[in-house]
Deep mutational scan, measured.
Amino acid sequence: KELVLVLYDYQEKSPREVTVKKGDILTLLNSTNKDAWKVEVDDRQGFIPAAYLKKL
């Protein structure tokens, strides 16, 4: 599985998104959309803007 590093805090703005903190390391589920990547956070799945993430 692929991991990503969170570069900036992000507060979810819709039910399809998830809230993350800078420095979190998350499982990347889908990065086919260049604008928003799907990740898993504490058994929740949701989207975060790709600009907030860096592949490890």
Rank of each mutant, 00 (worst) to 15 (best):
residue 34 K to D: 13
residue 37 W to G: 00
residue 55 K to D: 05
residue 18 V to C: 07
residue 1 K to C: 14
residue 53 L to D: 03
residue 11 Q to Y: 14
residue 48 I to Q: 01
residue 13 K to E: 07
residue 55 K to T: 07
residue 53 L to G: 03
residue 48 I to G: 02
residue 54 K to N: 05
residue 34 K to G: 10
residue 4 V to H: 00
residue 14 S to G: 12
residue 42 D to E: 12
residue 7 L to K: 04
residue 22 K to A: 13
residue 2 E to I: 14
residue 53 L to Y: 00
residue 32 T to I: 09
residue 51 A to Q: 13
residue 29 L to W: 03
residue 31 S to K: 05
residue 49 P to D: 06
residue 43 D to M: 09
residue 5 L to D: 01
residue 39 V to E: 00
residue 2 E to V: 13
residue 6 V to N: 00
residue 55 K to W: 07
residue 34 K to Q: 12
residue 48 I to A: 05
residue 17 E to M: 06
residue 6 V to C: 05
residue 26 L to S: 02
residue 13 K to D: 06
residue 19 T to W: 04
residue 28 L to I: 04
residue 55 K to G: 05
residue 28 L to C: 08
residue 18 V to L: 14
residue 56 L to K: 02
residue 21 K to L: 06
residue 46 G to P: 03
residue 10 Y to S: 01
residue 35 D to Y: 15
residue 3 L to T: 08
residue 19 T to Q: 04
residue 21 K to I: 06
residue 32 T to V: 10
residue 1 K to I: 13
residue 27 T to P: 09
residue 49 P to L: 06
residue 45 Q to R: 09
residue 16 R to Y: 15
residue 46 G to N: 03
residue 54 K to R: 11
residue 41 V to H: 09
residue 40 E to M: 14
residue 15 P to I: 09
residue 16 R to C: 15
residue 26 L to K: 01
residue 48 I to E: 02
residue 47 F to C: 12
residue 36 A to C: 15
residue 11 Q to T: 14
residue 19 T to S: 14
residue 28 L to G: 01
residue 41 V to M: 10
residue 38 K to F: 15
residue 51 A to R: 14
residue 2 E to Y: 11
residue 45 Q to P: 07
residue 41 V to Y: 09
residue 41 V to Q: 07
residue 11 Q to S: 12
residue 18 V to D: 01
residue 48 I to F: 02
residue 52 Y to F: 13
residue 19 T to K: 06
residue 50 A to H: 05
residue 17 E to Y: 07
residue 38 K to Q: 14
residue 52 Y to M: 10
residue 5 L to Q: 07
residue 41 V to A: 09
residue 36 A to E: 15
residue 29 L to Q: 02
residue 43 D to N: 14
residue 40 E to I: 12
residue 7 L to R: 04
residue 50 A to N: 06
residue 30 N to V: 08
residue 13 K to Q: 13
residue 39 V to Q: 01
residue 20 V to H: 02
residue 8 Y to N: 11
residue 51 A to W: 14
residue 4 V to P: 00
residue 8 Y to H: 13
residue 45 Q to D: 07
residue 47 F to V: 07
residue 17 E to T: 06
residue 46 G to F: 15
residue 30 N to G: 07
residue 14 S to R: 07
residue 21 K to P: 01
residue 44 R to V: 08
residue 3 L to V: 07
residue 25 I to A: 00
residue 51 A to F: 13
residue 55 K to H: 08
residue 56 L to N: 00
residue 16 R to K: 12
residue 25 I to G: 01
residue 42 D to V: 09
residue 49 P to E: 05
residue 24 D to F: 06
residue 54 K to V: 13
residue 4 V to T: 01
residue 11 Q to K: 12
residue 51 A to T: 11
residue 2 E to L: 13
residue 27 T to F: 11
residue 50 A to G: 08
residue 26 L to V: 13
residue 43 D to C: 13
residue 49 P to V: 05
residue 17 E to F: 08
residue 41 V to C: 08
residue 41 V to W: 08
residue 52 Y to P: 03
residue 14 S to W: 09
residue 7 L to M: 09
residue 32 T to M: 12
residue 22 K to H: 06
residue 3 L to A: 05
residue 24 D to K: 05
residue 11 Q to V: 14
residue 24 D to V: 06
residue 46 G to M: 15
residue 46 G to T: 11
residue 33 N to V: 06
residue 42 D to F: 10
residue 52 Y to G: 08
residue 21 K to D: 02
residue 24 D to S: 10
residue 38 K to Y: 15
residue 26 L to Q: 00
residue 24 D to E: 12
residue 15 P to K: 09
residue 19 T to I: 05
residue 27 T to Q: 10
residue 44 R to Y: 08
residue 28 L to K: 01
residue 56 L to S: 02
residue 23 G to R: 02
residue 15 P to W: 08
residue 37 W to A: 01
residue 7 L to D: 02
residue 10 Y to L: 01
residue 10 Y to K: 00
residue 44 R to G: 07
residue 42 D to S: 11
residue 56 L to I: 14
residue 30 N to M: 08
residue 29 L to Y: 03
residue 34 K to F: 09
residue 25 I to P: 00
residue 33 N to M: 09
residue 36 A to T: 12
residue 12 E to A: 15
residue 6 V to K: 00
residue 36 A to K: 12
residue 8 Y to P: 01
residue 53 L to I: 05
residue 51 A to I: 13
residue 53 L to E: 04
residue 33 N to L: 09
residue 21 K to Q: 08
residue 47 F to I: 06
residue 30 N to E: 15
residue 55 K to V: 12
residue 55 K to P: 09
residue 41 V to S: 09
residue 9 D to G: 04
residue 1 K to P: 13
residue 10 Y to T: 01
residue 12 E to P: 13
residue 26 L to D: 00
residue 14 S to C: 10
residue 38 K to E: 15
residue 34 K to N: 12
residue 28 L to Y: 00
residue 37 W to C: 04
residue 52 Y to D: 05
residue 13 K to R: 13
residue 9 D to C: 05
residue 35 D to F: 14
residue 11 Q to G: 07
residue 2 E to H: 11
residue 40 E to C: 14
residue 31 S to H: 09
residue 30 N to H: 07
residue 47 F to K: 02
residue 55 K to N: 07
residue 47 F to Q: 04
residue 12 E to S: 15
residue 48 I to L: 12
residue 54 K to F: 09
residue 28 L to T: 01
residue 27 T to C: 11
residue 17 E to W: 09
residue 3 L to F: 14
residue 44 R to P: 01
residue 50 A to E: 05
residue 46 G to K: 05
residue 19 T to M: 05
residue 44 R to I: 08
residue 29 L to K: 03
residue 8 Y to V: 10
residue 38 K to R: 11
residue 20 V to D: 00
residue 39 V to T: 00
residue 10 Y to N: 02
residue 30 N to A: 10
residue 53 L to R: 01
residue 47 F to W: 15
residue 16 R to G: 15
residue 35 D to N: 12
residue 26 L to P: 01
residue 34 K to P: 15
residue 18 V to P: 02
residue 43 D to Q: 11
residue 16 R to V: 12
residue 19 T to V: 04
residue 50 A to W: 03
residue 40 E to Q: 15
residue 56 L to F: 08
residue 6 V to F: 00
residue 40 E to H: 06
residue 13 K to V: 08
residue 20 V to L: 04
residue 14 S to Q: 08
residue 39 V to M: 02
residue 24 D to P: 00
residue 18 V to E: 01
residue 26 L to H: 05
residue 54 K to H: 12
residue 22 K to E: 06
residue 16 R to D: 15
residue 26 L to R: 02
residue 7 L to Q: 03
residue 8 Y to C: 15
residue 15 P to F: 08
residue 28 L to F: 03
residue 26 L to Y: 04
residue 1 K to Q: 10
residue 45 Q to M: 10
residue 53 L to F: 01
residue 25 I to S: 00
residue 2 E to C: 15
residue 45 Q to C: 11
residue 33 N to H: 10
